[in-house]
């Protein structure tokens, strides 16, 4: 019997989808000046959000995952963005950028700013190629519509959103007919499953966490990537030493300290995330002989800070209730930030 001439990689057990700007990269494009500066930045001038690259590296360490990036940055920035990712030691499997020039030339001005018509078909088409059993964790930010689009994606493939609601959303979101057709076509090819475990929303604009309550407990707004790492430890995607590595990077490169990390931990507890076991695992890892953890010492202080934050709350709050997401009433979340419909108050 002869050996095959190539060995296919193992099908991924987990897929991590990332946005780039304001999720992975510290990006300012709130003014034209910021936009221009961002466009002309070199790779080494771009700065990753503290802990993001460490988190991606640790997630990929487990070996059976796929990193899929869908960014609203224009295709012309591919070279510089890829170089930046390589500088950070990040390896990706898919990297989709927006065809802004194409949209401009075709007079598709809504598509320049719209997110639903761009990201939703892109991630659905990516999912078509994934094994049905592959779990997903998605990372976005609060600058645009990530919580809405990622949740809709999750509920579409889980069969919790029907054709009627999807049509209403696509119409209200100003999605062009061909993009809407791409959404429907990809959706029909995906076997019904419920693979999306978490949606992390990096609070770049420090949007109040209650803004995301309507999306249910699957969406976790985070102030930093130590919080994401803690939740992923509780969810079984990371080990305690891996979480500590991420914390060490944040301490060494971004000025985090025992107070900010323990406050971040307590913030999640207060939102009802069940992290008690994760805290125990972290304590055990801190007591281990890992030399890297020298940066985190003195250990008694760290353990004491976490224990105190836990004890300060008395009885842990109950986890937030799981609820159906009303996408039609939340459509204003999906409109571009300066769209007049975006200001619609929540009911």
């Amino acid at each position: 019997m002869s050996l095959p001439d190539r060995i296919d990689p193992r099908p991924p057990r987990r897929i991590y989808r990332w946005d780039l700007d304001k999720t992975y990269l510290q990006t300012d494009f709130d003014s034209l000046k910021d936009l221009l500066r961002t466009a002309f930045q070199k790779a080494h001038e771009k700065v990753a959000i503290p802990g993001a690259s460490a988190l991606i590296r640790e997630l990929s360490e487990n070996g059976d995952s796929r990193l899929c990036i869908v960014s609203g940055s224009p295709k012309q920035m591919r070279a510089v963005l890829e170089e930046k990712l390589k500088l950070d030691g990040v390896r990706w499997d898919e990297f989709v950028l927006k065809d802004n020039i194409g949209n401009l030339l075709r007079g598709r001005f809504r598509a320049l700013r719209g997110q639903v018509g761009y990201k939703l078909p892109a991630i659905l088409e990516s999912r078509v190629k994934a094994p049905a059993e592959a779990e997903e964790v998605l990372f976005g930010d609060d600058a645009e519509a990530d919580a809405f689009i990622y949740s809709l994606f999750a509920d579409l493939i889980a069969g919790r959103v029907d054709e009627r609601v999807l049509s209403q959303v696509l119409e209200a979101g100003g999605v062009y007919p061909d993009d809407a057709e791409r959404v429907r076509a990809a959706w029909k090819q995906i076997p019904v499953a419920d693979p999306v475990r978490r949606i992390f929303i990096h609070l770049d604009k420090l949007t109040p966490p209650a803004h995301f309550t309507a999306y249910g407990p699957r969406v976790v707004p985070i102030f930093n990537y130590f919080q994401a790492a803690l939740v992923l430890l509780a969810d079984g995607h990371l080990s305690a030493p891996q979480v500590l590595k991420i914390a060490v990077e944040m301490v060494q490169t971004a000025g985090h300290n025992i107070i900010t990390l323990s406050n971040s931990f307590q913030d999640l507890l207060r939102r009802g995330l069940p992290l008690q076991q994760a805290a125990v695992a972290l304590s055990q890892a801190l007591e281990g002989p890992n030399k890297l953890l020298a940066a985190m010492r003195p250990m008694p202080d760290i353990l004491s800070a976490f224990s105190k934050r836990l004890a300060a709350l008395g009885t842990p709050p109950p986890p937030p209730p799981v609820q159906a997401v009303d996408y039609v009433s939340l459509i204003h979340h999906a409109l571009p930030r300066n769209h007049k419909g975006r200001t619609k108050p929540s009911p």
């Binding site: 420090l206 949007t207 323990s262 971040s264 913030d267 207060r270 934050r309 300060a312």
Partner: peptide, 14 residues
């Protein structure tokens, strides 16, 4: 807090 813009890294509760 949930309704207010804040930085969760700089706040704890007793």
């Amino acid at each position: 807090l949930a309704e207010t813009k804040h930085n969760g890294e700089r706040i704890s509760v007793q």
